[in-house]
Structures are given as C-alpha cells and as structure tokens.
C-alpha cells in the first residue's frame, strides 16, 4: 500500500468524528453495478476486453454538512481489488437557489497490484480540483461540474533494460446537467466534455505522442423512488472515437469516469440516512 493511500485513509479517519458531530449532516450510501453495452473492439497491449469493462460494483459513501462534504468511492473490478476515489469540498450558499461547491480530489488507481493492471496505463494517481454550481429554477435543477485533473507518470513496461513510461498533460472535464422531477420519477440529463491533455509514451529509444483530444459522454438517468432509497438507471454513450487504440492510452480514466466502454448502463441504489 503506498504512502498516498495511507495519507488518504488517515485523513478520512480523522475527518469522520468531526463531521459526524454536526446534527444536520446527512450520509448518502450508494451501490452501483455497471454493464458494458458496447465494448471497444481491440483492447490495448496486455489486456483482454473483460479487463476494460466498467467496475462490477461501485460503493460510494458521501457525507454532507451545510458547509462541506466528503465522499469515498471504491470501484471493484473483475480482479476483485478496488480503485479508490476521494473528494473533499466546501459548500457555499450564494443565494436560496444557488449553491457552489469546490474542493480537492484524489484517485488512486495504483492500488491494484494484479496483472495486467500493474505497470500499465491504468495504474496511476490522479489529483484534481473541482467546482460545482447548482441553480434551482422552478422544477429544474441546473448545474455544472468542472474538474481539473492531473495524472501521474506511470511505468508501462520494461524490456531489454529499457523502461517505457506514459505521461499525460492535464485534463479538463466539464459536465453540465439538468435534473427535473416528473411525477414520481426524477430525470437527469448530462453531457460530459473531456479535454484530454497531450499524452506521451517514451523510453530511451522510443517516443510516441498523442495530440490533445476532446471527447464527450452523454448520460441519461431515471430515478425511481423506493422506500428510503432511490434507484437510478443510467445509460451513457461515448462519442465516436477515430482511434480506439490510442484512446485506451490517452484516457485511462478507468474508474470514476468510466470512459472505457463505448456504451454502458448502470444501476445505482442510493440510500440517504
């Protein structure tokens, strides 16, 4: 277990008691299962198609207080080990209808030490800054997420005493969305635009570069209220990608963003308590 993970868990451990003292706090626990509807045609070197499916199970726990929130998300893959995401942010109520959130996030995709994830483009640590604004306009909740993401350099392989690594420039992710109640159902539409930074693969005697790339994901979700819970069914579709093989290296955002399925569906059970 690396030092970053230890720091993260330590932070969570000390944050929990303090946050739980706030009476108006609220937890959200969600369990999600992902399904791939349309996979990429050719997996990257060393991987099989089954390795690139959305996480089998995602566990997310979130705690809101009036001025801040944190959330931890574990993405369990087919090999059983989780990818870990953590966000911590402050909340600001600018008007009765307008709320603003900003904070820091970390994604630990290097927790898995199992082949083929180990020493691959999917084994990285990502640091992010995020901001969210939401405005309640009648029955509509209109909002947008923005995330700036920095991904660490990662070893891809080592052959003939030459180590090959992959590195990325910063990514910018913008996700406008709209949420509305229709009778008992909740409907949510979202379009996430990724501006993926330049990416390079290099060793002592090899170099290959990818130009920056814009790609979008459209999401449509339906929320069905259940006793104390909400069941969300989400369908998402990735824009057409001209070079899918290159995309596997330029967009290894395997957890949290679920880029690596051209079409996917998710069933998400959310319980607030």
């Amino acid at each position: 277990m690396n030092s970053t993970l230890i720091l993260l868990l330590t932070f969570i451990f000390f944050s929990l008691p303090a946050l739980s003292e706030t009476k108006s706090s609220q937890y959200t626990l969600s369990l999600q299962k992902g399904f791939s509807l349309k996979e990429f045609e050719r997996p990257p070197y060393g991987f099989e198609s089954s390795h690139l499916l959305p996480p089998l199970i995602t566990l997310n726990i979130k705690k809101d207080v009036p001025t801040s929130y944190w959330q931890v998300q574990l993405d369990f893959m087919s090999v059983g080990l989780p990818f870990i995401n953590f966000d911590y942010g402050g909340k600001f109520k600018l008007s009765p209808n307008l709320e603003f959130t900003a904070g820091l996030g970390i994604t630990l995709n290097n927790v898995i030490k199992t082949e083929p994830y180990k020493d691959s483009q999917f084994s990285y640590v990502a640091y992010s800054l995020f901001a969210n604004g939401e405005y309640q306009l009648g029955p509509f909740l209109i909002g947008t997420n923005f995330r700036f993401k920095e991904i660490t350099e990662t070893t891809l392989a080592s052959f003939e005493s030459k180590t090959t690594k992959i590195d990325h420039d910063s990514d910018y992710i913008l996700s406008p969305y709209i949420l509305v109640d229709v009778y008992i159902l909740k409907l949510k539409g979202e379009y996430t635009l990724y501006q993926l930074g330049r990416t390079a693969i290099a060793s002592d005697d090899f170099g290959y570069g990818y130009n920056s790339l814009s790609v979008g994901i459209a999401k449509l979700s339906v929320g069905i209220p259940l006793p104390k819970m909400t069941l969300w069914i989400t369908y998402q579709k990735l824009d057409n990608i001209s070079d899918e093989t290159a995309f596997m290296y330029q967009a290894p955002h395997f957890s949290r963003d679920y880029l690596l399925a051209k079409e996917a569906a998710f069933a998400n059970l959310t319980w607030r308590f």
Binding site: E153, D167, R198, A200, A202, S203, D205, G207
Partner: peptide, 22 residues
C-alpha cells in the same frame, strides 16, 4: 540513441506533436 534518455523523449513528445524522437 546515445545520451538521449526517457525523460528527454517524454518531454519532447508532450510538447511537440507529432513527436519524432527516434
């Protein structure tokens, strides 16, 4: 490639597209 190393090639490929370090 003599004295060229991985860091140099990585830097070239991140800043120049298409990179041609070979």
């Amino acid at each position: 490639t003599g004295s060229r190393d991985q860091d140099t090639n990585m830097g070239d490929c991140l800043t120049t597209y298409p990179c041609n370090v070979f």
